[in-house]
Structures are given as C-alpha cells and as structure tokens.
Simulated scan of single mutants.
Amino acid sequence: MNRRVDYLVTEEEINLTRGPSGLGFNIVGGTDQQYVSKDSGIFVSRIKENGAAALDGRLQEGDKILSVNGQDLKNLLHQDAVDLFRNAGYAVSLRVQHRIQVQNGPLGHRSEGESNAIPAAVVLVSVFALTVVAAWAFMRYRQQL
C-alpha cells in the first residue's frame, strides 16, 4: 500500500539560557554545506543530554532555526552561523520551525482497511478504573447499611 507522507509545519519562539555546555545542541547546514536538498538553512543535528535545549524540551533534532535574537539565518555560511550562536549572549531567543510528519494526509484521515479501534491498553485501564470505582461504591453502600 502506498502511503502519502505530509508535513505539518509550525513556528515557535524558544528562549534558552546558556548553560555550562552552551545552548546544548549542535547545528548543520548553511550555504556552503546544505543539509536538506535545496535548503541552505540551519538545522538542529543533535540535542545534548542535560543541556539547556534538552532541559527546555521544545527544540528537537531536525528543527530548522530561522533566527537567533532576531537575526535571520538565511544565506549564511555554516561557520558564520556557528559564530552567531557563540556570540549570542547568555539569554538567547530562537525562532524555530518544527516539521511534524503526518502519514495519510490530514490528521484523523484513515485509508481503506485501517481501523478506528481503541487500543487494548486503553480498554484495560478503563475497565480497571471502573472496577475500582464500583468496589469503592459497594463498600460505601455496605458501610451505610
């Protein structure tokens, strides 16, 4: 079965405070070393464990960084982008583009043969919760007799 892959593109402003290991991520890209075909932008290649970006949690590997402290990153050499990050100061504001992969078109769309069934774990947790509530209600009822 052929599956169409679509992307939902969102932008977000992320403010990070530089920590002992810097901002806590590595970048790739630039006009001299394109990371994505036909796109010379700057992308996050790695989030460092326990770094500022990892602790914040919003920046993800693969995100495109559009600007740093309001300065656009379009048409920069890779080293110029690195220098910009290094000289950005203690409090750094990033404008980031997230690209979220969505299979089979828009959210909620199901192709022929795909099920809308509720996962078994959800059913089991629901049954367990109802059983606990019923047992509690029964015990309260018996106490009142």
Rank of each mutant, 00 (worst) to 15 (best):
S126E: 05
S21W: 07
V36Y: 08
Q144K: 12
R4M: 07
G22R: 03
F43Y: 08
I47E: 00
I100W: 07
N104Y: 09
G22K: 01
G113F: 05
Q34R: 13
K48L: 13
S93Y: 10
Y7G: 00
S40C: 02
V102R: 13
R95G: 12
G30E: 07
S115F: 01
E61Q: 08
A52Y: 00
S67G: 04
Q79H: 11
L130Y: 08
N87H: 07
G62N: 02
V44P: 00
G89H: 06
Q34M: 09
G30M: 08
Q103F: 15
Q103M: 07
E12M: 11
I27S: 03
A88W: 06
G41S: 06
Q33W: 02
A129V: 14
H78S: 01
R142K: 14
L76C: 01
H109A: 08
V9D: 08
R99L: 12
I14C: 05
V28T: 03
V127G: 03
K74G: 08
L73I: 02
T131S: 14
D63L: 00
L145P: 03
R58G: 03
L8A: 07
G24D: 08
H109M: 10
P106Y: 02
G30L: 02
I14L: 11
T10Y: 12
H98V: 01
I47W: 08
L130R: 13
A54F: 07
Y141G: 06
T131E: 05
G108I: 01
K64M: 10
A135V: 14
G41V: 05
Y90N: 15
V127I: 07
R86T: 10
G57S: 06
F25V: 09
V92S: 09
R3T: 08
G113W: 06
A81L: 04
K38W: 10
K48I: 14
D39P: 00
L145E: 12
D83Y: 01
S37Q: 10
T31D: 04
L66Y: 05
R86Q: 13
A91P: 04
V82P: 00
Q33I: 04
V132G: 07
I47T: 02
Y7T: 02
V133H: 15
Q33L: 06
K64N: 06
V123M: 12
N87L: 09
E49Y: 12
N2L: 08
L145W: 02
A134V: 14
G19V: 04
A91N: 14
A53T: 13
D32E: 11
V28F: 05
V133N: 11
W136T: 10
L77S: 05
V123T: 11
G29A: 03
N15K: 15
N75I: 02
L94N: 05
V5I: 13
G51C: 04
G113D: 04
M139V: 13
G41F: 01
V96T: 10
Q144A: 10
A81K: 02
E114R: 00
G70P: 01
K74T: 15
F85N: 00
N15R: 15
L124Q: 13
A120F: 11
V92D: 06
N116V: 04
I14F: 07
Q33G: 15
R142S: 09
L77H: 11
Q34A: 14
A134E: 06
L76E: 01
I47K: 05
G24S: 12
E49N: 09
V127M: 11
V127Q: 11
R86A: 14
V36E: 14
V123K: 13
R110L: 15
N2R: 11
Q143N: 08
P106E: 05
D39Y: 14
